[in-house]
Computed example of a mutant assay.
Amino acid sequence: MLVLLPPSETKADGGDGPPLDLGRLSFPDLNPVRGKLVDALVDLAADVPASLAALELSERQAGEVARNAELLTSPTLPALARYTGVLYDALDLGGLSRGERTRAYRRLAVASALFGVVRGGDPVPGYRLSGGSVVPAIGSLRGLWRPVLEPQLSTVDDLVIDLRSGTYAALARVPDAVVVRVVSDDGGGVRKAVSHHNKSHKGRLARALATVSREPRTVDGVIRAATAAGLRMERTGERTLDLFA
């Protein structure tokens, strides 16, 4: 099973791993594009005003540009420890046992504007780049990633659970993935997609799927793992699931 998570704009500082080595990342066929983007971001960081404009940041966020300038020299952290925010708080990597963390590193993957997709244990530095960004030397990330990322994800033989947000789903389609929607129920059978609890529920689901001892290999197995974790989930199609907030 491979669970695709959205990334976060916010990222943890520091790290105790060696500087970025693309050869240590999963999905090595993506490395030519990764290298191109890393070089472009480092070059762009030399021009702070241009970086702020391209990344749609304010002057108070100039520290994010400094992160990009140090992409090749700053320390790394496992991807699941690097990304922060509501979803990753709910995942609670620090609260996992050693065995659960090993499973999480293998089963969970993070969609990334910079790296395409990385497994949870892949060592990555702090950076700032969003899926909707346009890098001046490169252009649209969608146009850059889709031709290489879609074929790469199509080779995944495992069950793929897609928890990505729309911006990152647009970087690569995964036709055979099981898509999870977080919804509310008004009690009368009317369901609406929710935004407020979306990330926290996806984080709880990711934790359930990462830590269950028997890895789910079917949609029904995913529902059982969610139910055992106290989540309410319902199958709505061959490859669609509703997760109730």
Rank of each mutant, 00 (worst) to 15 (best):
G143Y: 07
A46C: 04
G203L: 10
E56D: 13
S154I: 00
R164Q: 09
K192V: 14
A137M: 09
A177R: 14
G14S: 12
G99K: 08
A81H: 07
S8F: 00
L153T: 03
A90L: 05
E64P: 01
M1A: 09
N31R: 15
L4C: 05
V174F: 11
R224V: 12
S184C: 12
A69Y: 08
D89M: 01
L241E: 10
A225P: 10
L96R: 07
P216A: 05
P19G: 06
L5S: 10
D186V: 11
L4R: 06
R224W: 01
P175D: 14
H196S: 11
L4G: 07
A79G: 06
G221I: 06
A12C: 03
A208M: 08
G187Q: 11
Q61Y: 01
L159W: 13
L71Q: 10
V179T: 15
V222S: 05
L37F: 04
A113N: 07
T84V: 08
P136R: 12
L22M: 06
S51F: 01
L87Y: 10
T10E: 13
D13H: 11
R82F: 01
S8N: 12
R82D: 04
P175G: 10
A208T: 12
A104W: 11
G131I: 07
R24C: 09
D220A: 15
A225N: 06
G187R: 14
L129N: 08
A193F: 08
T218H: 10
G189L: 08
L57A: 04
T76F: 07
L80P: 00
T236R: 11
L171T: 03
P28D: 01
P18S: 11
L159Y: 14
R82M: 05
R60G: 00
E234W: 03
F115R: 03
T218C: 05
H196C: 06
G116N: 06
E150P: 04
V117F: 02
R106K: 10
E64H: 09
L243D: 02
V124R: 15
H196M: 13
E238P: 07
I138F: 09
A111F: 00
A206W: 12
V135R: 14
E215P: 04
T102D: 12
V179E: 11
V160R: 13
R191L: 13
V86I: 14
G17D: 04
E70H: 14
V148K: 14
E215I: 08
N68D: 08
V42T: 13
A172R: 09
P18M: 04
R191T: 15
A109T: 00
S26P: 03
R207V: 10
A53D: 14
L22S: 05
L87C: 10
R214L: 02
P125M: 07
F244C: 02
V182H: 05
V117S: 05
P151T: 06
L44M: 06
T84D: 12
S26C: 04
T211G: 02
G143M: 07
P6A: 09
S165I: 03
G132C: 10
P147M: 05
D122K: 08
R119I: 00
R235V: 02
L72S: 15
G187P: 09
K202S: 06
M1C: 02
R106T: 04
L2G: 01
P49M: 03
K192P: 02
A104F: 11
P19Y: 07
R82Q: 04
V48M: 00
D16L: 13
V156H: 12
D185V: 11
L205Q: 03
A228Q: 13
R181M: 02
L77D: 01
